[in-house]
Amino acid sequence: MIDIVRQKISKLLSDGSVKGVVALAMANGHVAPCLFQKEDDLEPLCLGDTKKPGDARYPLNKVLITIARQYPEDVFGVLVRGCDERGLYVLYRLNQLEPDKVMTIGIACPQELAKACECKKPYPDELVAGEKTEGITQQGVQDMEDMDLSKRFSFWKNQFSKCVKCYGCRDICPMCFCRECSLECEDIISKGELPVDIPVFHLTRAMHMTDRCIDCGLCDETCPSGIPLRLLYKKTSKIMNAEFGFTSGINKNEQSPLNLMGPAPEK
């Protein structure tokens, strides 16, 4: 699979259709994001997984945003999985990247990873390498909903109280691009206090993610306290789908119902 990817990148760079490609590289035994700019320099390229599928992923889109802001005229390539591509669609929608300045090199996720993510669509629309696998139904949210109210309450209270307010979830999130963040607004979130305001801190973030979260799961993987943040945001996605028939990033040109005037669309 990696060879196909390498070939593709090499071609894009050689024919000058991109200025560079944001992908992953292996160096000194570690996987890290890398901007490849030369076709003959693609040796360290890797797809991220080392020990098991999905154990070394990065928000490449976020890296891409930083680069694109510096070089607004140039076209860049980016290595994307299903979730990354959904993320790109949202970033187009929110005007953070321009579709004609981005070329994707899409790879499909293995079934094992898709399962672990409960991913609805573990492959990008534009697939370069890998096999499309089945989307997985979302069981985790359902299990949570089946608990009774007081159990849910104590579950989340325990989870949220573990938070050390490191902002890792926000910093890793490819959908978080604001220059000023509500989670640092002193009037909402008190500074220098632990535990964080329950549930204000995490619900504030969840509300901001409702029409954006593309369910990549990086927050979950990043959280040093092991809070199941992904479960929280999966719920927001589920509500958006049930109430407004909207799934963030599934359609390239779809506007969020929260950013449209007028009543909710007919279901």
Partner: peptide, 23 residues
């Protein structure tokens, strides 16, 4: 709109009923 912190996501633009916001 604070030009320093605006990231130009245009969410406000689609929400303005008076078409007072431009990009």
């Amino acid at each position: 709109i604070n030009p320093e912190s605006c990231v130009g996501c245009k969410a406000c633009l689609t929400m303005c009923p008076y078409e007072a916001i431009t990009y």
